[in-house]
Design a protein around this nucleic acid. Structure first.
Lengths: 145, 145
DNA sequence: CTCATCTCAGGGCGACTGAGATAT
DNA sequence: CATATCTCAGTCTCCCTGAGATGA
């Protein structure tokens, strides 16, 4: 007698939030030992894929607020996973770059994250996982613009 | 050049969180004028579908934490949308019931919520929306147990 | 005694706002 | 001048924990 009402179970916005809860719990558990959170991982990923970038660009690509980028970069820099340097070409900017340690750590995190995804999507077949990703991508892309 | 990295765009946990952001924004905007939030809506829905229930049951069905149920019921009671009454059969329990005003308000909220879902899923065809809901339901059900 | 229910106090994270300093 | 970047201070919602009081 604990079931959620049918109305909620048909509600995309409710389902997204409910699915995000175990997603965040699993990812947080995977990262726990490393002392990092999902924001850090997203930023490291951007740097690995796109090379050094300003904090503003980091925020835009990860969809993380400008305020939160400041704190997250502080924490990554403290662990020597990234370095902050003034941009000589535009002195408003800080250029953030991955260190060798950051690259190594990212590879470890990649494996942990993939493990969490597998647990999250355990009830879905490979084909269904791709469908889900494709559908979510389109929703996210639509609201990005 | 603001695109999220491909790695993140393939990551179910990241996509769920990114999709939940506009979902929550749209729903919050729809509810804004009513002075309610999504927790209130979930609880009203459970009461409408399953009849009066204890706060503990409300929490289980909506997946809202016991602590937050207390506050949310307070707020609904303040607006006279629900009433709290001691359960004569089990004096530990508060029985929460929808009022007539609560039923009316819920009907208004239903329409607002449906409008928000339509905006949220605008890029998807009807068939794709059903697919998404079906997939998310299975993920949520799996992690409920 | 054990277990469930209700309540309160409070931590932690993530999304977000406003404002100021600095530079383009 | 307007615009863009970085930073700080602080708000709000939501998820969650621990603990106490009451009663089954």
């Amino acid at each position: 007698m604990d079931d959620a009402p049918e109305r909620l179970q048909r509600l995309p916005s409710w389902l997204l939030n409910q699915a995000a809860i175990p997603a965040n719990r699993l990812v947080a558990e995977a990262f726990g030992a490393a002392g990092l959170r999902r924001h850090h991982y997203a930023m490291l990923t951007v740097l690995a894929e796109g090379g050094p970038s300003s904090q503003a660009e980091l925020g835009r690509r990860t969809m993380i607020d400008r305020s939160d980028v400041v704190a997250a970069v502080d924490e990554l820099a403290e662990q020597r996973l990234v370095v902050r340097a003034a941009d000589p070409a535009d002195r408003r900017r800080n250029v953030i770059s991955l260190t060798a340690a950051g690259t190594r750590r990212l590879r470890e995190l990649d494996a942990l994250v993939d493990g969490a995804q597998a647990q999250l999507l355990a009830p879905l077949a490979a084909r269904e996982r791709k469908q889900l990703v494709a559908l979510l991508r389109r929703v996210v892309a639509h609201h990005r613009a």
